[in-house]
Amino acid sequence: MNIFRLTGDLSHLAAIIILLLKIWKSRSCAGISGKSQILFAIVFTTRYLDLLSTFISLYNSCMKVIYIGCAYATVYMIYMKFRATYDGNHDSFRVEFLVVPVGGLAVLINHDFSFMEILWTFSIYLESVAILPQLFMISKTGEAETITTHYLFCLGLYRALYIFNWVWRFYFEGFFDLIAIVAGVVQTILYCDFFYLYVTKVLKGKKLSLPA
């Protein structure tokens, strides 16, 4: 555990809670991609199956349970509780174009050809692109609520901090994982355009809206 890892996890937790609170307080999931949230629920489920087989630490187990629980709660709020406010027409990203290639890649490129390891690899690859339906939705509608941009910023910050964490682990533990690093860098790059808009617009008190 190092400072980048811990702040990365906390940033990730903040993102998840910001999104849940936004939906709960406004009684609406307008502007939120249900497809991205389903993908994140799949990511957590396939990665944290080791909750049942391996104990790492209390911190590790608790965070995993919280992440999975929040992911399913978010999906429930979007597709069940506040379904009437879900903007399905604008959430039109074709997720099969992500899930199928990512599944194929996980079978082809992994550390070990075993069920658990392939699912872990699948979750790493899927997480790197799971935000695309959300970014696609924003580019389609041309705007995002400020609270949604805070959610995206925390999520992107978590990825960036994890990269620093891996640099740290490489220097101090002599360990690196190419699969996670490549997927993590891809994921962080996807946020760069958004980071730019966040700093130049949202932090200056303006709403995030894209030029028509």
Partner: peptide, 10 residues
């Protein structure tokens, strides 16, 4: 098999 050592991460 050779598993990833990153299993302690989230």
């Amino acid at each position: 098999g050779i598993d990833s050592q990153l299993k302690d991460e989230l």
